[in-house]
Amino acid sequence: MSDTSADAADSGNPEHQEGGKYSVKGKEYTRDTRYITTRVTADGRDGFPVEAGRYRLVAARACPWANRSIIVRRLLGLEDAISLGLPGPTHDERSWTFDLDPGGRDPVLGIERLQEAYFKRDPEYPRGITVPAIVDTTTGAVVTNDFAQITLDLSTEWRAHHRDGAPDLVPQRHRDEVDEVNQRVFTEVNNGVYRCGFAGTQEAYDDAYARLWTALDWLEDRLGGQRYLVGDTITEADVRLFTTLVRFDAVYHGHFKCNRNKLAEMPALWAYARDLFQTPGFGDTVDFTQIKQHYYVVHSDINPSGIVPGGPDLSGWVTPHGREALGGRPFGDGTPPGPVHDGERVDPAHTPLR
């Protein structure tokens, strides 16, 4: 999936800021997956040891790649160990900005733009200023923006700081299957909707559209007989799929032309998505207003008017899903996370959860 073209190193396009830059070179969308791969680990082998209070997770609610890190942090109870910085839903060609905070500055890092933390790491940083990013508060510099590794490390390297009853999101007995499912979901679904939305030709779009719906039909069949993607508990695989599904009808169906049918018209996937949405740690991190503002405003090449649609109706997200009949134990031998921390609650007007 890596793009080594010169275009991929140009951070001037505002669409290059969401979970990894992309290039539409020729006809096909390609995501640049070259990240800062430094890791925060228990043994500190990269120079950044796990340490409660030292790091800040900067993750916009609007971005699906960042949303998954917010979910995992909450499921594992890492709120007191890793603080959360929340940029607003839109950004310009330079960077995500902290326009939701008083004075337009992150209250911990003291910066207006996430770009400042990247430039503290590398004054000539050449790629997109992406979220999620983990920032070292002792230096103000980004440690990593490798979104896939970030959540895996939260589950494995930060175990000493997990809450009592935290679920095992990467169970060793299912690790190979989780990795296999994650790979297909990433290439065909998480990234597949973008491949449709930013296709440069009809041929590229038709190919992307077929691939996306082949994968969604596979998931519909898989989830028709089991409550979760792997095993009988929530895993990393469910987190990764959820953040695309929760945006599907609100954005991808129309904005990205993924319109064979709506998620709400796929019985198993729709029930599965509602099941997760109603599970503490999932829906309570989702801000539909910010999601729509991000895609419809920032993607000016797709939506030059900048008009944000009023729909869809969100009330269906809190209707009964019936997935309990399939069995399963959402948190395994653990427990649900407690109430959302003060200062991290989604605006009640932006979600059907009240």
Results as ranks from 00 to 15, higher is better:
Gln293Arg: 07
Gly306Ile: 12
Arg227Ala: 11
His161Lys: 12
Asp347Ala: 05
Gly47Phe: 04
Gln278Lys: 01
Thr335His: 06
Gln202Tyr: 02
Leu216Pro: 00
Trp158Asp: 12
Ala208Ile: 06
Pro107Ala: 07
Arg31His: 07
Val297Glu: 08
Asp207Thr: 15
Asn145Ile: 02
Lys21Ile: 04
Glu93Pro: 01
Ala59Lys: 05
Gln226Met: 08
Gly110Leu: 08
Gly334Tyr: 04
Ile134Gln: 00
Asp7Tyr: 11
Asp99Gly: 09
Thr33Leu: 01
Ser83Val: 06
Arg54Cys: 01
Pro312Asp: 09
Thr37Asp: 14
Glu157Lys: 03
Arg260Asp: 04
Pro267Gly: 13
Leu114Met: 07
Gln183Arg: 15
Val340Asn: 09
Asn261Asp: 12
Ser315Tyr: 00
Thr41Phe: 12
Leu212Val: 09
Phe282Glu: 01
Pro309Arg: 10
Gly310Ile: 10
Met1Phe: 03
Val193Cys: 10
Ser2Val: 15
Pro352Gln: 14
Asp275Ala: 07
Ser5Asn: 08
His174Tyr: 11
Ser95Gln: 08
Leu219Lys: 04
Cys63Asn: 12
Val108Ile: 15
Glu177His: 04
Arg94Pro: 02
Glu93Asp: 06
Leu241His: 13
Pro330Ser: 10
Ser69Ile: 10
Lys27Arg: 14
Thr187Lys: 12
Glu79Asn: 09
His16Lys: 13
Lys27Ser: 15
Pro89Met: 03
Val246Pro: 01
Pro348Tyr: 02
Ala59His: 04
Arg175Val: 09
Tyr272Arg: 13
Ala166Gly: 02
Ala148Asn: 10
Met1Leu: 12
Leu229Gln: 12
Arg68Met: 09
Val40Ala: 02
Gly88Thr: 10
Leu100Glu: 13
Leu169Met: 07
Gly224Arg: 10
Asp207His: 12
Gly322Gln: 08
Asp136Ser: 05
Gly140Asn: 07
Asn261Val: 14
Ile150Tyr: 03
Gln149Ile: 04
Glu324Leu: 13
Gly197Cys: 08
